[in-house]
């Protein structure tokens, strides 16, 4: 049977998910993802030709709010889960390459 996910695709996915996988982890996850995708084949057997694509499941629509300002979080509270802050800013490693 044809392989559903290649090592290259797995590496690409882990890059997008900002995950660094060891080669051992890659060898562990590859068959696991493979089996998930195989399960999708079972779902694919269902005939959906007469069924409209679904973009949500609540059955609700037009849930909006009026344009009104309500109080925001207190700053110390807002920043409390940041690992590093300075002068009210969240500090993260430099994002631009020099």
């Amino acid at each position: 049977m044809q392989q559903k996910i290649s090592l290259v695709e797995l590496q690409h996915l882990s890059k997008l998910a900002r995950l660094k996988l060891t080669s051992l982890e890659e060898q562990t996850y590859l068959p696991q993802i493979e089996s998930v995708l195989e399960y999708m084949d079972i779902l694919n057997e269902t005939d959906t030709t007469s069924i409209e694509p679904l973009t949500q499941i609540t059955g609700l629509k037009n849930i909006t709010r009026n344009d009104e300002i309500k109080p925001s979080l207190d700053r110390s509270n807002a920043l409390s889960s940041a690992s590093k802050t300075t002068n009210g800013f969240v500090v993260v490693p430099n994002t631009i390459k020099k």
Binding site: D67, L73, A78, F89
Partner: peptide
């Protein structure tokens, strides 16, 4: 504006926050 003074669980992306669209913007 003073940094990080206009934030809440929705715009900070905290778990469990529920976004509701601004009708005027739409």
């Amino acid at each position: 504006a003073q940094p990080n003074t206009h934030t809440c669980p929705v715009c900070l992306g905290l778990p469990g926050a529920l976004p509701v669209p601004n009708y005027t913007a739409c």
